[in-house]
Structure formats: C-alpha cells, structure tokens
Design a protein around this nucleic acid. Sequence first.
DNA 1: TCAGTTGTTTATAT
DNA 2: AATATAAACAACTG
Length: 260
Amino acid sequence: MPELPDVEGFRRVLAEHGRGRRVAGVRVLDTSVLHDVTARALDAALSGCRFDEPDRLGKWLIARTDGPSVLIHFGMTGELVWCEPGAEGHRHDRVVVDVGDGELRYRDMRKLKGLWFAEDEAAVATLLAAEGPDALSLDREGLDGALSGSRRRLKAALMDQGTVAGLGNLLVDEILWRARLRPDRRGADLDAAERAALHREMRRVLRESVRAGRVPPRRSWLTGARDEPDPHCPRCGTALRRDRVGGRSTVWCPHCQDGS
DNA sequence: TCAGTTGTTTATAT
DNA sequence: AATATAAACAACTG
C-alpha cells in the first residue's frame, strides 16, 4: 500500500492528531519494528515531548517533536491509524503512542520496515541521506536530470528511491501508462516531448493520488483495471500485459504505450 | 502446496 | 562500473 500518496495521508493523520499534543507514553507491542532503539529508550525519550508539524520525504514519514524525531517507513503493509481512547486493539498494532485524547498506532502486518529513532536533525539527515528529490516537488529539469545520467529502464529508474523518492510499483505503472511510455524504455533515450509527457503525467497522477491518500483504483485508471481477472486497457480496450520489469510485476498496454 | 503481494537490501551475474 | 536478477525479509490470500 504505502507509496508517496499513502504516506502523505499518514502525514495528515499525524498533523491532525499529533501536532501540538504531548506524548503521554509509548507502548511497543512488537519490538521487531524498532530498528535502532529499544522499547524502553523510545518511551523514555519521547514521553513528555510535543509533536511538531510532521514532514515527509519520499516514502518516509518524519515525526518531529520539540525533542527527538521518529522516522517511519511503512514497507508494504504499514499504516498510521488514529484511535479514540479505549478503542479495541488490532492484531497488527505494533507501536501505540498515547497522546492523551487518543492513540496514534503504527499498524503493520508484514513488518518489512518500521520505526527509526533520531536524536536530532543531524541524525534525521543521516537516515535520509540516500533519498533522492521528492517526486511531489520535482520539476521538469529535476526529472530530466534524474533520467539523463543512466541507461536504466524507466521502470527501474523511477522506482529507485535514490533517483526519485516516493514512487512505487503502482504509481510508476500508472504514470508510464498515462505518459504512453513502455516501462522497458531507457530513460536517457527519451526525446523532449516524451520527457515533458512523463513529467506532466507524474504531476497529474501524484496530485490526484495525494488528494485521495492512495493511488485511486478508478475504472478509468490503470490501477483500477490491473487486478481484474482478465485486465484490459481502460483507454483502448487492448488486453494488458503483465511482465516482470525491474524485478517487479509490471502492467502495461502494448497498444498505447509506445504504440499509437 | 504454490504463487503472488503497493518495499528495500544484499548477493550474484552479466 | 553500471545494470539486471533472485532471494530474503514476514505474513497473509487465493
């Protein structure tokens, strides 16, 4: 689930329910989601701290306080959920932050990622050092620059968080489908018109997805068709292809994308 | 039982 | 050197 738009949704949850409130306590229900801090140290460091405006870079959520920060990466199945006081537990709740009038819960079935602790801004910067520019604020020149220096396929280049931060499997397929570019095209081979289309469609897909807090599975989107039993292109009706590109299952239209 | 999954890292191969 | 591929991580679904 979590790509840039999903994490942006979690950032809004934290902004609405965390910002300005004090941490009353942190309960760690599964220590395996803590990556560089113990449950006891996390509770001790965070209790009494007041949440600031949360930030996001790529798929990372940055929970700042008037003390240390917590960085959350949601992996494939993580989410941040707001719960009223006394709300019943969920099987996959891993960390619960009590903020007095309710709880912020890190919930994650597969636990592929989780929480990192950052004592100060220098530690935050270190944890995020490998991230490329955030996809949401990437301009034409930035995207051109990210693609020009490499012979990689578009799918692999756009999925690489060090090249562009925030795009995942669904988003990249959606953007390439809208821009009518085959996922196995070499990014450096695109002409000016193709690069412009790629940037334009990235912006459009991101804008609508961020608003929804997910890649919306609308019938008119690739995302709304790709998981059907016999998926067809919402634009031209051609049977969609599913291949492995860049190690990930990739859905694309053999007619629209670099066709006609 | 087996394949597949919206993410990332590591090892290995080309 | 850069790029591609497979496996591993973990837990579940069909």
